[in-house]
Amino acid sequence: AAALEASPSAFKVGEALTPEKDVTNYNNFYEFGLGKGDPAANSGDFQPTPWTVSVGGMVAKPKEFGLEDLLKFPLEERIYRMRCVEAWSMVIPWVGFPLASLLDKVEPLGSAKYVAFETVVRPEQMPGQSGYFQPLPWPYVEGLRLDEARHPLTILAVGLYGKTLLNQNGAPIRLVVPWKYGFKGIKSIVKITLTDKQPPSTWNIAAPNEYGFYANVNPAVDHPRWSQATENRIGEGGFFGGSRRDTLPFNGYADEVASLYAGMDLAKNF
């Protein structure tokens, strides 16, 4: 990973950072295998450069962005909590830029209501995408409502810990939406489409009773197979670090984002 210049930002949580070795070695990225160590172990052949992201759909100016264009956006360091749907969490210093700045460049039409995202498909470089057993339908897809996508907390990350993203973390560019469960943070994005219909999302297709479209972190709504009331903070040392803590509504970002969901039944729209 190469060093990245980033300016500090006001968005940073005052909690101890998760050690870099945990952030880069404990990952869910099923394109590289099901185990938490698989993405780090199996992503060596993946080529994150050169790269283009095509942005289109209901926009006035569809455009293909090369990685070099994306790196020209003013980069900021954002220290966010990351809460996995599996009830573990990290604190990660991301480097990226607001998704809203990218959307401004393509001028979404008034009719656009949602943003759809797509991960690259490269079976020859991503072992989870080839062979007899494939855990999910590819490409991995995700989506946000346009107002969620435009929220200042929502970023496209190109790095972490001051360096470009490693393959296992979604190189070269990925989504980070800190008030939602980690699986919303789609990795290695190649396509962004503005649309007027709620886009499909991979985990919702795989198990609709377990993973909703919104996937906002919510301690009051359990996953059918485990409680979401508490979480295990990764990297706080062994068995007796006292790492289990209460999960916060919207992962602690309720002040910033709760208004997006005013009047919605969050148990139904989980």
Binding site: N232, I234, F239
Partner: peptide, 15 residues
């Protein structure tokens, strides 16, 4: 390994 912090990531779950 777990008690001495040598299990990667989520040590309790791994154990």
């Amino acid at each position: 390994l777990g008690a001495t912090g040598q299990l990667p990531g989520n040590a309790i779950k791994e154990f």
